[in-house]
């Protein structure tokens, strides 16, 4: 049983490492990042993964080793501890942990603190309700809650390579606005109107996911983020305007 246990421990460590090594090629990794800030989050993730991975491998090898060594003859030493060792393995991880904590203070501040918000008008308002995303653009007057507001369901268009500020509103329960490709997630709590910002660097269509349980239809609450070059974004707003002013003669 000793060898089998050692084998199991080594196998488990190998499986952990394997599951991360092959993750990218199987698409088990984060979707490709397209936000200006996401890179720094990914970098932090990788840093933590490397540290955690190293710790895991060391601990598992030690565990395998101590289990392996148990077969020797004679009795164990009746040793109750060693203060120097205790201090060592308290201080060492503490150093790593303090480094880890310190290393992400800047990211968090720039990601979330209100002072870091880019000084641009709100691009769109995201209205969440069971089980739908609606998006409101301020229209030509640049103000919300006026007659020329433009509204779409499902698809949010934003300009590429520009800071985008969104105001999030919930009509009923808590939802969460999650765009995996942008590394953006923010709960939408009714009664609060959180504001988020990001800069998308690549045009394309990305998934919007609801990440907070909002009822039976939670899984259906998908949306799409269309990142468009500025000119196409403007054209999209004009298209919405035209659709809004439809007189019903076109078939749709």
């Amino acid at each position: 049983m000793r060898r089998l246990t050692v084998l199991l421990i080594v196998l488990l460590a190998a499986a952990c490492v394997w599951s991360f090594v092959v993750a990218r090629e199987h698409g088990w990794w984060f979707p490709r990042n397209v936000s200006a800030f996401g890179e720094r989050i990914d970098h932090l993730f990788e840093l933590i993964t490397w540290i955690a991975g190293a710790v895991l491998v060391i601990v598992f090898l030690l565990l395998a080793l101590v289990v392996w060594r148990g077969a020797r003859a004679g009795r164990a030493e009746r040793a109750h501890g060693d203060t120097r060792l205790e201090v060592a393995w308290t201080v060492l991880p503490a150093g790593v942990l303090v480094f880890l904590a310190y290393d992400q203070l800047d990211e968090w501040r720039e990601l979330k603190y209100a002072g870091s918000r880019p000084n641009v008008p709100v691009t769109a308002r995201v209205v969440a309700s069971q089980f739908d995303w609606h998006f409101v653009y301020p229209g030509r007057d640049g103000r919300f809650d006026t007659l020329d507001d433009l509204e779409t369901a499902y698809e949010l268009s934003v300009p590429e390579d520009e800071p985008v500020v969104l105001e999030l509103v919930s009509r009923d329960v808590i939802h969460s606005f999650f765009v995996p490709a942008l590394r953006v997630k923010q709960d939408v709590v009714p009664g609060m109107r959180p504001v988020i910002w990001f800069e998308a660097r690549e045009s394309g269509a990305y998934e919007i996911v609801c990440a907070e349980l909002c009822g039976w239809g939670h899984y259906k609450m998908a949306g799409e983020l269309a990142v468009l070059p500025r000119a196409r974004f403007d054209a999209r707003l004009v298209e919405l305007e035209r659709e809004f002013a439809s007189n019903g003669e076109a078939a749709r």
């Binding site: 984060f30 996401g38 720094r40 989050i41 932090l44 993730f45 933590i48 880890l100 992400q104 990211e107 968090w108 990601l111 979330k112 999650f178 995996p180 590394r183 953006v184 997630k185």
Partner: peptide, 8 residues
């Protein structure tokens, strides 16, 4: 535990 990494 890491605030920025927790976001995604």
């Amino acid at each position: 535990a890491s605030t920025p990494v927790d976001v995604p």
